[in-house]
Nucleic acid binder design. Sequence first.
DNA 1: AGGCTAATGACAGCCACTGACAATTGACAA
DNA 2: TTGTCAATTGTCAGTGGCTGTCATTAGCCT
Lengths: 210, 210
Amino acid sequence: MNLRERKKQRTRDALLRAAMELFATRGYEETTVDDIAAAVDVSQRTFFRYFAGKEEAAFYVPRLAETQVVEAVRARPPGEAPLEALRRAVLESWDTISETIEEIVPVELHMRVYRVIESTPALLAAHLRRAAELEEELARIIAEREGLDVDADPRPRIVVALFGGVIRVTERLWSAGDDLSLEGMRQLTATYLDQVGPALAGNWRTGQSP
Amino acid sequence: MNLRERKKQRTRDALLRAAMELFATRGYEETTVDDIAAAVDVSQRTFFRYFAGKEEAAFYVPRLAETQVVEAVRARPPGEAPLEALRRAVLESWDTISETIEEIVPVELHMRVYRVIESTPALLAAHLRRAAELEEELARIIAEREGLDVDADPRPRIVVALFGGVIRVTERLWSAGDDLSLEGMRQLTATYLDQVGPALAGNWRTGQSP
DNA sequence: AGGCTAATGACAGCCACTGACAATTGACAA
DNA sequence: TTGTCAATTGTCAGTGGCTGTCATTAGCCT
């Protein structure tokens, strides 16, 4: 790697860290791009050469996680039922995700930024849009696994929509609660996915849930 | 109603219509607030006194529809299973929705704007955030119907997430296709909701779908 | 060493949005 | 009807995100 390349990498990292640190402490809206650039001692223009916008800095790490989930789903054996494949892929990819993150920024910082994302309207909106794109991708993968046409058969998109919905509900609960550990999230996700069947049963009065 | 009130109403209507017309023809990003204000011959500042931002103008009509759905769910008899109640409420509220819209703007204009919302990243993001808020509200209603605590029992949020997911999938398909009639949308929604059961079944090879 | 190219900074400008203040216009009572 | 009060609006100035342009700097390669 060149000196040039290394320098670029360092600038990018510094900008990312400074941005995340500022978002996490001061808040997203309260942080200006000038603040971030000043913290790294580069011009505002340089920031925009590395990130398309403030938003992109906030979502840099979450994007890594998404990529990993997609690949985990792709790697699932074709025999599994769709919902089962999705479930296992997510739970499994969280084992490796923290290491991936730690290579870039402290996981703890990521978690604090994640909370900011969930509690900042503009960021939450962007997050949901990304999630929708992810779902579309997953639907295609599922359809292919099952040898179906996504645009002709509604079922791939429906399972994925259901699955995505459950994930989002747990994300929200998790980020709002106190237990920010990965294990807590795993637990929550597993519990909620287990409730999918019962939730669809007609009669909810039979048997309460945790 | 005062002359003053009437004048305000007229200005608001004119701004809304001008905004929607411009969004639908020129596109959202390509329309500046100055354009909208100029079309109505008021100052830019006045626009911001009626709408919190460009976005709010785009979502003014869709918000009406959302309100109506929420009320339709509230009006459902308590005996129905949750998913059934949601299904009936949505299908039913679409009967009345076009009249409500027509009081404000031509339905055809609304449809064109809706397509713009679905195809403009910034607007789609905002739309999904609103949808998430709506789902939270519906989950609370469902929980109350069933005499449950939303924060203790996951099932209300899960059904609603599933339902919301299906709705969003159909919205997208509908807005991307050619048949922009309400009847087409009803049909699509009913079909997709009917596929929820089959989609969750383990084995998709038994019996193809339309 | 010196020319080439990529990265950066400085500057100007667009657009969404906000606060402050002055001018206008309808409402209402004397 | 007129004068006063309050609401509506326009103007102006300013902030922040973001982009294009151009000159300058700094690493690369012969």
